[in-house]
């Protein structure tokens, strides 16, 4: 598929004139978030060095963060712009001043980046991961079906030291990966 027809349809003159007349920080952050939402999960899934499960979790997390970020940036910028009438200076005040709209849009973006998006992500992420985790729930190695764990009570009762075999320890290491999935080492 050639991208040339799409590029031909884009009118650079109109876009440039519109951005020259009025540019807002929201356009850039939304564009960056949208492309990050596509490319970051894509690159994470392509990274074959990582464990497939951690890869999937990281990709979901990254994609969900950017999906949350886009409406938050737009919404907060619009909400802060509503403060413009309260911040507009009286005409009696002399000096070189402009409309507070641009600064308010920017303040909305800053507020979203600093507090609102990380806060919303930490609130929503457990639920999002739960939804995606539903199918994998049965695949997680539980202590009940773990052979080493099942062997322990009997060994303690007999007063014997527990020396699990290497293969069994490997099975139990999957438990460690569960802690990874809950946030450790995963970019958000």
């Amino acid at each position: 598929m050639s991208l040339r027809p799409i590029f031909k349809k884009i009118n650079l003159t109109d876009i440039s004139n519109a951005l020259g007349a009025e540019n807002s920080a929201v356009y850039t952050v939304v564009a960056v978030a949208a492309f990050k939402g596509i490319f970051r999960p894509f690159f994470t899934m392509k990274d074959k060095k990582q464990d497939p499960k951690s890869r999937k979790y990281a990709a979901i997390r990254e994609g969900a963060t950017e999906i949350i970020a886009i409406p938050t940036y737009i919404g907060l910028a619009k909400l802060t712009a509503k403060l413009a009438p309260s911040l507009t200076l009286d005409k009696s005040i002399k000096g070189n001043f402009t409309s507070p709209n641009k600064a308010l849009h920017f303040a909305g973006v800053c507020l979203a980046a600093l507090i609102v998006i990380p806060g919303l992500c930490s609130l929503a992420m457990p639920y999002i991961l739960k939804v995606f985790n539903k199918n994998d729930k049965n695949k997680v190695v539980s202590n009940e079906i773990n052979p080493t764990a099942a062997m322990l009570p009997m060994a303690i009762a007999l007063g014997q030291p527990v020396r699990p075999e290497k293969t069994k320890l490997f099975n139990m290491n999957t438990y460690g990966k569960v802690t990874m999935n809950t946030g450790g080492g995963v970019r958000i």
């Binding site: 540019n23 807002s24 920080a25 850039t28 911040l87 507009t88 641009k102 600064a103 303040a107 973006v109």
Partner: peptide, 23 residues
């Protein structure tokens, strides 16, 4: 009010690179 209406802040807010760097 004066800070929010300053042309310097508007210039920073409109400048893509400075806005993204601050963000």
């Amino acid at each position: 009010k004066e800070a929010m209406c300053s042309p310097r802040l508007a210039e920073i807010a409109e400048n893509t690179i400075s806005a993204v760097a601050i963000e």
